[in-house]
Amino acid sequence: MATKMYNSHLSTILYSCNEYYILDTYMALVHISSEVNSKYIIQNYSDSKADLISLIRNRYVKASYKTVFNCLNTLIEKKIISYDNTIGAWTLNDMENMTKSADNAITLQDNAFTGYTKIRSFFFTDEFSNMKAREKRLIVYMAQLSDSKASEFHNGFSMNLLKHNSGWLKVLKTKCRYYAKYTIEKLLNKYSDLFKDTSEDFRQRDYSPDRNKKFKFSFYCPSLDTRKLEEDTIELVKLANIKEYNMIMDKLKFAEVTLSKKLVMHFVRAISNIKEWFIKERVVQLIVNKYRAIQVYHSRENIKSLPAYAAAVVKAVVKEYRQFKSSISLENVKKYEVGEYFMEYIDNNVNEDISYDIEKSLSLF
């Protein structure tokens, strides 16, 4: 369950990309990814862009297929995301670097350890989705500043558009301070419910000439508050995958297994990108059985990393499903009957130990 975005990726998007919904697309991809041993993967076992787009379109990105397709292509061209055939998953490249210290840099390229920005639930609201591209860039830039340890903007924001090499001008992709001033004023007025504008008080305490004061702004943005961020993210995952959440909770309750809220959300995220429901059920049952052996029978060692273990189970079950499809003809089988045939196949091959495939897959993550 990813809760952070890599600042290096964000900088590439903010300064080098112009697609209207590219920030929405990137955020959605990060949000549906799972952190498995520092790597961020989207495990849907298909290198098809169409399958990946179907996971995020409408649910997270309210745009046409072609729009999201173009955004995804740009992210691939910028080497932000790629498909890894070895693990059968889309991978958000180099995101493992975002939590590393710059002190660990070995090469000049390693100096790109630029930290991370936390995902806000506001980023998935209609209000954010309907913003103009430049407004979205400003909001994300504010989130970056708010999360930066070196930043002075943890409780509010102030800006001086006359300042040389102003970051605000770079984000707006303009050198015209009058255009930037107009954009900021319009943003604060248009979204007065999001921002508390304190510019007038800020200017009254400033002793610079009046002609310069109008280029200075000060404001707060409560929507970027990070104090309840993890709880918000967990709730967002739950609401977006309510059927998966309910199934997992029912099976955990029946098996008398107890998991923390965060582990449940990792569990939900692990199966949320799988297309077939019967595969989700198979994965959930295997993991629940493992936890029952741990908690009830005390016959197994505890799972060190649920995201890694769940990823291995998914990979093993998908392999099992592919073997099933290659062993029988599904030409005359109705779509809703495939799951029944699959479960019958599993029952008939009960001697096949899937544990070996799980352990083998676990070594890849």
Results as ranks from 00 to 15, higher is better:
residue 147 D to Q: 04
residue 148 S to F: 12
residue 148 S to N: 14
residue 149 K to E: 13
residue 149 K to W: 12
residue 149 K to A: 11
residue 150 A to F: 12
residue 150 A to W: 03
residue 151 S to G: 11
residue 151 S to N: 10
residue 151 S to D: 11
residue 151 S to R: 06
residue 152 E to R: 10
residue 152 E to P: 02
residue 152 E to H: 12
residue 152 E to G: 00
residue 153 F to W: 03
residue 154 H to W: 07
residue 154 H to L: 08
residue 154 H to K: 12
residue 155 N to P: 00
residue 155 N to C: 01
residue 155 N to M: 08
residue 156 G to V: 03
residue 157 F to W: 02
residue 158 S to I: 06
residue 159 M to N: 02
residue 159 M to K: 08
residue 159 M to Y: 05
residue 160 N to H: 05
residue 160 N to S: 11
residue 161 L to M: 06
residue 161 L to R: 02
residue 161 L to P: 05
residue 162 L to E: 07
residue 162 L to A: 00
residue 163 K to E: 13
residue 163 K to Q: 09
residue 163 K to H: 02
residue 165 N to R: 13
residue 165 N to C: 02
residue 165 N to F: 03
residue 166 S to E: 00
residue 166 S to A: 03
residue 166 S to M: 01
residue 166 S to H: 03
residue 166 S to C: 12
residue 167 G to T: 02
residue 168 W to E: 03
residue 169 L to S: 02
residue 170 K to P: 00
residue 170 K to Q: 08
residue 170 K to S: 10
residue 172 L to F: 08
residue 172 L to I: 01
residue 173 K to W: 01
residue 173 K to E: 04
residue 173 K to D: 11
residue 174 T to Y: 12
residue 174 T to I: 07
residue 175 K to F: 07
residue 176 C to H: 09
residue 177 R to M: 10
residue 178 Y to V: 04
residue 179 Y to R: 05
residue 181 K to G: 02
residue 182 Y to G: 01
residue 182 Y to W: 13
residue 183 T to A: 14
residue 183 T to K: 09
residue 183 T to N: 05
residue 185 E to C: 14
residue 185 E to S: 12
residue 185 E to K: 15
residue 186 K to T: 13
residue 186 K to F: 13
residue 186 K to D: 15
residue 187 L to N: 07
residue 188 L to Y: 12
residue 189 N to A: 05
residue 190 K to C: 15
residue 190 K to V: 10
residue 191 Y to E: 10
residue 192 S to C: 14
residue 193 D to T: 15
residue 193 D to W: 11
residue 193 D to M: 14
residue 194 L to I: 15
residue 195 F to L: 10
residue 195 F to A: 11
residue 196 K to I: 15
residue 197 D to L: 14
residue 197 D to T: 14
residue 197 D to S: 05
residue 198 T to R: 10
residue 201 D to V: 01
residue 202 F to L: 08
residue 203 R to E: 09
residue 203 R to M: 09
residue 203 R to F: 07
residue 203 R to A: 03
residue 204 Q to H: 13
residue 205 R to L: 14
residue 206 D to E: 06
residue 209 P to I: 00
residue 209 P to W: 07
residue 211 R to I: 14
residue 211 R to L: 06
residue 212 N to S: 06
residue 212 N to P: 00
residue 213 K to S: 03
residue 214 K to I: 15
residue 214 K to T: 12
residue 214 K to E: 13
residue 214 K to M: 09
residue 216 K to W: 05
residue 216 K to M: 15
residue 216 K to T: 01
residue 216 K to G: 02
residue 217 F to T: 08
residue 217 F to R: 03
residue 218 S to N: 07
residue 218 S to R: 11
residue 218 S to P: 00
residue 219 F to S: 01
residue 219 F to I: 02
residue 219 F to Y: 06
residue 220 Y to H: 05
residue 222 P to L: 03
residue 222 P to R: 11
residue 222 P to T: 04
residue 223 S to H: 06
residue 224 L to M: 11
residue 225 D to Y: 10
residue 225 D to F: 00
residue 225 D to M: 04
residue 226 T to G: 01
residue 226 T to V: 04
residue 227 R to G: 00
residue 228 K to Q: 05
residue 230 E to P: 00
residue 231 E to A: 13
residue 232 D to V: 01
residue 232 D to A: 06
residue 233 T to M: 14
residue 233 T to F: 10
residue 234 I to Q: 09
